[in-house]
Design a protein around this nucleic acid. Structure first.
Lengths: 204, 204
DNA sequence: TCCTTTCCTAAGCACACGCTTAGCGTGCGG
DNA sequence: CCGCACGCTAAGCGTGTGCTTAGGAAAGGA
């Protein structure tokens, strides 16, 4: 694994061969995209023959969907967990940004696939994933709206502000690498400071 | 042109057939990526045969490079023009963000290729483009550093702040579409407000 | 008008690609 | 032990891909 993927991805995927295929696929999808990745690339990297992929997944696109759906579900769980915490809107947005940015930095290989390889999904699968994305956005928007309502935040347009907050996290997936100067956690903290300022909070 | 590309791209490209190929290519590259685009896709969309592409460009990748290099050069010119204006650091960063965001919104098809299709460039071409990217980043960093120096901005880490500013603009290329509620100009203005806040400026 | 250059097209080449099929080996359960 | 299910592999299929080549048409210049 040249990109040092976390060893704890997809713990429930069985058998091990299927998981190995997902590891191989996510790496290549992140590097050269879905269309730039051949089934032979994936199989070779997983130490198998190309036909083995079809024992575990119905198609190359099914592999992509498995990765994309799981990544979106993880992200949605994360933002929902933040939304379920006690605390002021400021505390919650701070925590949200820390967690969101940290996830995209630590998981930048997966995140790159999750954020940028949507077009390659077949239509039904795309619909599933798009719904998850909308829910993530809605959680972020409602956290910001809470802050506006209680006077902690002042933004000209809540939707654009939420979009900007998401953008900062999502773009981390594009640029972050192991050679980055900041750890994912440190980056998350720093970005949270920037975001709270952006939202007009005096508590930073 | 299904994605309503601006009619004024690449005015110096001659003959017209070469320009038509670039229009066809940028649209498909933006939609399905370089690897997802075949020479037949490009040629058909340009009303030619696949062999015609090779009259004007030495390879499919040469087409990508032409688009990518020009997009980066346009962006660099833009940020350098802003850096060359009179005005306070706050004014210049405001203008920078307005222009950068506006460019990525208005030109989101080209920008998508410029920002996200780097990996497909051959090594030498990538080196050329990467150098342009670094120069763009340096201009942005120096504008922010000017503001820190004169006390208009306070940021924990100038590089991360510059990265965040660039991220906001770059990610516009990913999400912006003709159905967006804001015009590129309005979006640029709003993002400028958010960025100046983020940088800790009281002048917004 | 003639010649040269430019701009194409149609056809084809040498591979590559996603996927299927036949067969084999291994492990498990009765 | 035997039979079955599972997990593969090797080989191959049908189609697709980037690119080349031969040839023709059109445009421009002398």
């Amino acid at each position: 694994m040249t990109m040092s993927l976390p060893a704890d991805l997809w713990p429930d995927v069985k058998p091990d061969a299927a998981r190995r295929l997902m590891y191989a696929a996510v790496e290549s999808f992140a590097k050269v995209g879905f269309h730039g990745t051949t089934t032979r690339d994936i199989a070779t990297a997983a130490g198998m023959s190309p036909a083995a992929l079809y024992v575990h997944f119905s198609s190359k696109a099914a592999l992509l969907f498995a990765i994309s759906r799981d990544g979106h579900e993880r992200t949605l769980e994360m933002v929902q967990r933040v939304a379920g915490t006690d605390g002021s809107p400021v505390d919650r947005v701070r925590l949200l940004v820390e967690r969101f940015v940290e996830w995209h930095a630590r998981r930048h290989v997966v995140a790159r696939v999750v954020q940028y390889e949507l077009e390659a999904l077949p239509a039904d699968e795309y619909t599933t994933v798009a719904a998850l994305r909308r829910r993530i956005e809605q959680v972020v928007q409602s956290l910001i709206a809470d802050g506006v309502k209680d006077g902690s935040f002042t933004v000209p347009d809540e939707k654009i502000a939420a979009r900007a907050v998401l953008s900062l996290g999502i773009d981390v997936a594009r640029w972050y690498s192991e050679r980055a100067r900041k750890t994912p956690k440190a980056l998350g903290r720093e970005y949270a400071t920037l975001v709270l300022r952006m939202l007009g909070s005096s508590a930073q």
